[in-house]
Computed example of a mutant assay.
Amino acid sequence: MKKLISLVCISMFMIILCGCSNNDFSTGSSAKAEQVDSSYLDAYAVNPQVPDDGTLLTVGQSVKDGKGEATLQKINLTEQSTGIGSIQLTVKDTKLIHLFPDYSMTDYFHGLTHNEEFDFVKIFVEIKNNSNEKLNFAPIAIIETNTGEKLSWEQDIYLENLNGEMEKKTTKRGNLGFIVDSKDDLEWIEITTSDVFDKDEKKIADAQKFRIEF
């Protein structure tokens, strides 16, 4: 009888112990990471040159498709806005990505780099023309890094037609990307926008400068 009671007690102890372990595991696995509002990507058409990085939210994550393999190196999801006259520019996300392009994309990137794989800074922007007239604007005229690199709008790898004319009361959204050399030492980028011009090419607002930290 005593032996039976002992076995029952041991069994109950094991059940309780397992139950505690399962609860702990469940709590850990069900703990939700900080939710990211990615609704700004809903109407975004995937770029024909660069893999879609929309799901890359954790450093080390990779995504692979017919355009190559992209791996997230650094990320800043803090939204940042600035006004340039009647233009409202909002940076939605900024990422440092390592890209190994597919062989089929070699010719496209050859004009910008001779490396088979490389790192680039990617910025997703939203541009609003709040005026009642057509304006001309470029969200990034120059991009500089803390490592001393200086790149111009002409070196953008996405080519999503974010520069140039904007009809009245319209919005543009999309990516700009710039190949960089010193990924390990990259701590911040500084963006200088273009001036804002009216339909007669008259400057109506000066360029703005702002910094994004990694």
Rank of each mutant, 00 (worst) to 15 (best):
86 S>M: 11
152 S>V: 06
96 L>D: 14
36 V>N: 15
214 F>R: 12
114 H>V: 13
90 T>H: 05
140 I>L: 10
167 E>R: 06
11 S>K: 00
213 E>T: 10
68 G>V: 11
95 K>N: 06
90 T>K: 15
104 S>Y: 14
170 T>D: 04
201 E>S: 15
144 E>L: 00
173 R>V: 15
114 H>S: 03
164 G>P: 13
40 Y>S: 02
143 I>D: 04
25 F>W: 12
54 G>F: 02
80 Q>R: 11
108 Y>Q: 08
115 N>C: 03
93 D>A: 15
61 Q>N: 09
95 K>S: 06
91 V>I: 05
28 G>Q: 07
206 D>G: 06
63 V>P: 00
50 V>Y: 01
79 E>D: 11
107 D>E: 11
200 D>W: 03
132 N>D: 13
31 A>Q: 07
151 L>E: 15
183 K>I: 09
197 F>D: 04
13 F>T: 01
151 L>Y: 06
35 Q>H: 10
67 K>A: 02
203 K>A: 07
141 A>G: 15
65 D>C: 05
57 L>N: 02
6 S>C: 08
55 T>L: 14
140 I>G: 07
173 R>Y: 12
57 L>Y: 10
38 S>M: 12
209 K>E: 05
180 V>D: 05
151 L>V: 14
53 D>I: 13
119 D>E: 08
160 E>S: 10
79 E>I: 06
74 K>G: 12
187 E>A: 13
151 L>H: 03
50 V>T: 11
72 L>H: 08
7 L>P: 14
160 E>L: 15
149 E>Y: 11
10 I>C: 05
177 G>C: 07
87 I>Y: 09
195 D>T: 13
160 E>W: 07
171 T>F: 00
26 S>D: 07
205 A>R: 10
99 L>T: 09
20 C>G: 07
179 I>Y: 02
195 D>N: 05
86 S>P: 10
120 F>E: 03
88 Q>T: 06
201 E>M: 07
3 K>D: 12
189 I>C: 01
73 Q>P: 10
151 L>C: 02
88 Q>V: 13
69 E>Q: 09
191 I>Y: 04
57 L>P: 01
53 D>W: 10
5 I>L: 11
130 N>Y: 02
138 A>H: 11
113 T>V: 00
121 V>G: 08
97 I>C: 04
70 A>I: 02
135 L>I: 13
81 S>L: 13
76 N>W: 07
50 V>P: 01
66 G>N: 15
146 N>G: 12
211 R>H: 03
45 A>E: 09
65 D>W: 05
14 M>K: 00
28 G>M: 02
108 Y>S: 05
163 N>S: 06
107 D>Q: 13
114 H>W: 06
178 F>Y: 08
160 E>C: 09
86 S>G: 14
165 E>Y: 15
105 M>C: 15
211 R>G: 07
13 F>S: 00
191 I>V: 11
177 G>Y: 02
139 P>L: 01
195 D>F: 01
65 D>K: 03
159 L>A: 12
111 G>F: 15
142 I>A: 08
42 D>E: 09
57 L>R: 11
209 K>N: 04
89 L>Q: 04
113 T>Y: 05
156 D>H: 10
158 Y>S: 05
173 R>H: 03
13 F>Q: 00
136 N>I: 14
188 W>K: 13
84 I>W: 02
140 I>Y: 01
212 I>D: 10
78 T>A: 13
6 S>L: 11
